[in-house]
Amino acid sequence: MQTLIKDRQCDIIVIGGTLEGCVAAIAAAKRGKRVMLLEKGGSLGGMASNGLCAWLDAPSASDPDVDEIRTELLKRLGLDDSPAGVVYPDQQLKVVLGEWLRDAGVTFLTHVFVSDPIRDGEKIVGFTANGKTEPFRITAGRALDATDIMETAGMAGLEVIETSGTVSGAVKLNGFDARRIPLLDGWDVAGGTLGRLDVSFDSCFGGLRFHCERPRTILPTGTGELLLSDLVCEVAYCDALTLSSALMGMRRFAYALRDHLREETEGMADVNVIHVAPRLNAYGTRRVSEPPRTLSLLNNDGRAYSNSAALEKGVAALR
């Protein structure tokens, strides 16, 4: 049996390479902390990249630290800010965040899954992480869970106090005629056009119901792409098996939607799926008990996801 463990130390351990997690790590590193960030997927950004939520919406309030992060993010993307927000290339964000973490001196590991918490009294000061080689035992002064549904809650012994049953998916399409598609409430922002597609469609897969009613649309300028989100799935409880079924069903729903768009929708007779978002938007579907001084949970507030909120949460994480 393999029993070696690699011990690592840092000041702050961030679980989850979401946008808020990356920003928290960068903010901490700017203050001179040694930071390690762990992500179970293969890339960074969460909803902001692979979730296809590729619009950096306007900030809700003015905060110099948030403004600084936002400005640097846009600079690294090669884009200017604008009052209504900015549409940016979702895939490019992945490499931008990686470079930013590297420049900030943050050590980040992808494809690692955390397991046992390391405790100092009540406080969680680290986690064991597993991957393809020996496990890591990473001890820090402080731990932050930046995942969407508080992935560490179960292992940390935190009780789930509330769940709701709506998750949503997104899909990236091409092969349509932008001048003819039924776009409702369209408005131009820097880098693209936002709106809703005048479509209503529902279907069932694997015993789950999926539907979209006038789904949100992002049309990045000059790309021939259309990002459609708000593809909704009702689930009874967000446990791992159900979320897997929902994710698999969502892919099938996206292709059924494609077929529906081809048949029924102006300007979309030849529409193609480039890819289906490989993660669901589960923000706001779980709340867990949060005993003080144990572990910081960035998303334990029931709020829907937005990129601007992610920047705010990341900056506020260590205040």
Partner: peptide
């Protein structure tokens, strides 16, 4: 042409 999807691993 532009990059529209990058592998995650």
């Amino acid at each position: 042409a532009r990059i529209c999807q990058i592998s995650d691993e």
